[in-house]
Design a protein around this nucleic acid. Structure first.
Lengths: 123, 123
DNA sequence: TTGCCTGCAAACGCTTTGCATGTTG
DNA sequence: CAACATGCAAAGCGTTTGCAGGCAA
């Protein structure tokens, strides 16, 4: 895997810690250098295969990327689409559940949907 | 919301208890009657708004529909894409977590990815 | 210099939408 | 009869892919 400035730019943005779509990353980078969104997808998918980043799907079906970190859950705001991380103390329980179903678990996702502190009033 | 045979057919299929994409529902119905896939999408989206069915997104980003039931989690097989339900005893904990973040939770999703009993050998 | 990476453009798959027609209540 | 649901076709959107040229090693 070769180093390019596009690749570096994508990593830098993700290392700020956000949860971003390819489109959002694209907008942030294209002001500063020439880049195509297909390059972003290609790099993100590679990084996901290398387990450098994690790919989740938001309620609208759009892929969201963020650097891989400790097991955690997501709070997803139905109003502004913000995603917050929450610590996940449930790993053991989920692993046990899987074993009960003779299922080999490689990963789990805990998503809580609702309204964040800023959007509470709206519904 | 008016009754039509297309609507009835969609409901009947979902009431068998599966987790299906619009395409899969379409294939099952079109052998028996004239139906267009847009009709299926329109009906599923209506039912989702009425909270009759639940809409989740599989790892490939495809919408999957199933009748709304007790809170539960999903075991999702990365090999054959089968989805199994698991009882969810975690509701209270998730609700507490949300409150700690001053987040108003309306719903949560617990997805465990891995390999089901049939596909275990493959990875 | 070699071969991986990029930009560009086109294709792809899932989902939605506009419109004329058919069906329900 | 009026309102709504349907089929059809086309558009929309996020994502992927083929290809020729460019750049890193």
């Amino acid at each position: 895997m070769r180093n390019t400035k596009q690749k570096t730019a994508i990593k830098e943005i993700l290392e700020r810690g956000g949860h971003l779509s390819a489109e959002e990353i694209y907008v942030l980078i294209k002001n500063k250098m020439k880049i195509d969104i297909s390059t972003i997808y290609r790099n993100l998918n590679m990084m996901a295969e290398n387990s450098e980043v994690e790919k989740i799907t938001n309620p609208e079906g759009v892929a969201i990327y963020h650097i891989k970190s400790e097991h955690h859950g997501h709070l997803i705001c139905r109003s502004c689409n913000a995603i917050f991380e929450i610590p996940c103390d449930l790993c053991e329980q989920l692993h046990t559940l899987s074993k009960d179903m003779s299922f080999v678990d490689t990963e789990h996702v805990v998503n809580i949907y609702g309204y964040c502190r800023n959007c509470k009033g709206e519904k």
